[in-house]
C-alpha cells in the first residue's frame, strides 16, 4: 500500500487533470457578464476566468498544508517522533510551491478583474501571509542548525493558531471565491463540475508530492544512518 501511494495518487491526478483540462477549456462556458437590462455582455474576465480553476485549487492546498504542518508539529513536539516532523516539513515544502502558484495566478486574475497586478484583495493577502509563514519555516529549517526541527515546529504551530486572526484581520471582502454570492456558489452548470474535478485532481497531485517528499526525507536519513554505521564498523573510510 505504501509503495502504491505515490503512483496511485499521481495517476489519479494525471487522469483528473486531463479530464478537467478538457472540461475547463472545451466544455465549460466562457464567463459572461450581465448588463443592467439583463442582456449578456463579455465580462472583463471572459477567457481569463479559466485561471480560477487552477488558482482556487492551489489555494485550498495552501490552506490545508498550514493545518497539516501545524497538527503534525504538535504531534512531533509531544512525541518527539521524527516521522511527524517529516510530514510537516514535506507539506510545507510542497505548499511553498503551491503558494507561489496561488500568488501568480491571483495576479493574473487581478489584472483583468481589477486592472492591477496586485491589489491587497483580502483572500489574496491571506494567501500571501500564510505563504510568508511557510517560507519563514523553510528558512528556519535550513539555517537553525541542530534546533531547526523544534523551532520550525513552533513556527508551524503558531502559524496555525494565527490563521483565524489573519482571516479576521483581512476582513470581509470582494473576493470572487467567497460568500454565497461568490463565484464558487454562482458557478454556471458547466463550470461547477470542472471546478470540483480540478480541486480533487490538484489535491491528489499535492498528496502525491507530499508523500514522495516524505519518502525522500526518510530515505536521506536512513542513508545517513547507514553511512554512520558503516563508518563505525570500519567498512567505509
Amino acid at each position: 500500500m505504501k509503495r502504491l501511494a505515490v503512483p496511485l495518487t499521481a495517476a489519479l491526478a494525471a487522469i483528473g487533470m486531463t479530464v478537467s483540462l478538457w472540461l475547463i477549456f472545451v466544455n465549460a462556458p466562457l464567463q459572461w457578464g450581465k448588463n443592467s437590462n439583463d442582456t449578456l455582455n463579455m465580462s472583463s474576465l471572459f477567457f481569463n476566468q479559466k485561471i480560477f480553476y487552477f488558482h482556487v485549487a492551489h489555494a485550498f492546498m495552501l490552506f490545508a498544508s498550514v493545518f497539516v504542518a501545524g497538527t503534525c508539529s504538535i504531534a512531533f513536539l509531544k512525541t518527539r517522533n521524527a516521522r511527524w516532523d517529516d510530514i510537516a516539513c514535506a507539506a510545507v515544502n510542497v505548499a511553498v510551491l503551491f503558494g507561489a502558484v496561488v500568488l501568480v495566478t491571483g495576479s493574473i486574475w487581478a489584472k483583468p478583474a481589477w486592472g492591477t497586478w496586485w491589489n491587497w484583495e483580502p483572500r489574496l493577502t491571506m494567501s500571501l501571509l500564510l505563504w510568508l509563514i511557510l517560507v519563514g519555516y523553510t528558512l528556519v529549517r535550513q539555517f537553525a542548525g541542530a534546533s531547526a526541527d523544534r523551532v520550525a515546529a513552533g513556527m508551524a504551530i503558531f502559524g496555525m493558531v494565527g490563521v483565524p486572526f489573519i482571516y479576521k484581520m483581512v476582513g470581509s471582502d470582494s473576493h470572487p471565491a467567497s460568500g454565497a454570492n461568490g463565484v464558487v456558489a454562482t458557478l454556471g452548470p458547466g463550470m461547477k463540475g470542472a471546478f470540483w474535478l480540478s480541486v480533487v485532481s490538484f489535491m491528489c497531485w499535492f498528496i502525491a508530492l507530499v508523500v514522495f517528499r516524505v519518502q525522500s526525507i526518510r530515505a536521506a536519513r536512513e542513508l545517513r544512518e547507514l553511512r554512520e554505521a558503516a563508518l563505525d564498523a570500519g567498512v567505509l573510510e
Partner: peptide, 20 residues
C-alpha cells in the same frame, strides 16, 4: 538561544506571525 543565526532568524519568525 543556542542557534548561531538567531539574530536574523528571530525577525524571520516573528514578523510573519505578528502581522495580525
Amino acid at each position: 538561544l543556542k542557534v548561531r543565526s538567531r539574530d536574523v532568524l528571530l525577525p524571520v519568525i516573528l514578523y510573519p506571525l505578528l502581522v495580525p
